[in-house]
Design a protein around this nucleic acid. Structure first.
Length: 279
DNA sequence: TCCCAGGCTCTCT
DNA sequence: AGAGAGCATGGG
């Protein structure tokens, strides 16, 4: 996609933005570390601590540290925010199915972010049998205990920063039975047994199997990592809400019009289900 | 007090 | 291979 943007003073402005809602995007359960203040969202997009806001059809991203390479910054943010995928066309395609059209209409401003691999892997290990508010708290404690602070924002820790953290220390972050799984994931990333470039290069099914070498990572967590950080848009994570949606909204199965991009459709379905379906 | 959460592992059949 | 209990923790 051709993305129109201008850059000045650590800020990139993306123009011609239509149907993009930051609240819907950051609150739809795909990420856990963005906070809003007076319409301005703050958080980390990869290595960039940022403020993000939308004014009419312009999307502003201000880096809170000095940008060394503005071209790289622009490209990274466009991809992170999902601006390089034609959502207008995709949503029109999905809306061929009436139930999909209903889910999209409920929150048309959702975009699937392209997040960093390591952070996504760990946060979705924490997500297992957990609820979103508590996931956020645990992830914040991880950042504040082991990450690096920029201004008043704590970066999610790198694998290197977690190198010497023990299971007992993870327990102190109140992550319960997930501590040993976080520990295993960190070790496997550090040893190279789990390699980001390898995951991304594998076809979906093999990539899922590869990630499941990590203890505590099953099909659902692997699918989330593949969808939210590896551009495997055919990945369709199934949690309790999606299972409810499948039973109540798609008793005949998923429609043909989302094929190949099931993961993007999934995010609209998930968000709709969470706020509209009975338990 | 019990139920549940962006599930998975282990055990029993 | 399929079903079911158990799991840490905290909010409702």
């Amino acid at each position: 996609m051709n993305i129109n943007s201008v850059y000045a003073e650590n800020t990139v402005v993306f123009k011609g933005i239509v149907d993009y809602d930051l609240a819907q995007t950051f609150n739809c359960g795909q990420c856990f570390r963005w906070d809003e203040n007076n319409g301005i969202w703050q958080g980390f997009a990869g290595k960039y601590p940022c403020k993000v806001w939308i004014k009419e059809t312009e999307l502003y991203v201000e880096s809170l540290t000095d940008v060394e390479n503005s071209a790289e910054f622009k490209e990274y943010m466009a991809h992170y925010l999902g601006l390089d995928l034609d959502y207008a066309r995709l949503k029109q395609q999905f809306a061929a199915d009436a139930t999909m059209a209903q889910a999209i209409e409920y929150a048309p401003g959702i975009r699937v972010l392209n997040q960093p691999f390591f952070e996504t892997l760990l946060t979705f290990i924490i997500s297992r049998n957990n609820n979103i508010p508590r996931i956020k708290k645990i992830v914040d404690r991880m950042a504040q205990t082991y990450g690096t602070k920029t201004g008043d924002l704590w970066a999610f820790p790198t694998a290197e920063q977690l190198k010497n953290v023990s299971i007992e220390e993870y327990n102190q972050l109140r992550m319960g039975f997930r501590s040993k799984y976080i520990f295993d994931a960190v070790q496997k990333v550090l040893s190279g047994e789990i390699d980001e470039a390898t995951v991304k290069s594998l076809p979906y099914a093999e990539a899922q199997k590869y990630l499941m070498k990590i203890k505590g990572v099953g099909p659902k967590v692997a699918d989330c990592v593949l969808l939210f950080s590896c551009e495997k848009y055919e990945s369709f994570p199934k949690d309790v809400w999606i299972n409810r949606a499948l039973a109540q909204m798609f008793p005949q199965g998923l429609p043909e019009c989302i094929k190949g991009m099931e993961g993007i459709a999934q995010q609209y379905i998930f968000h709709y289900a969470r706020f509209n379906l009975e338990k």
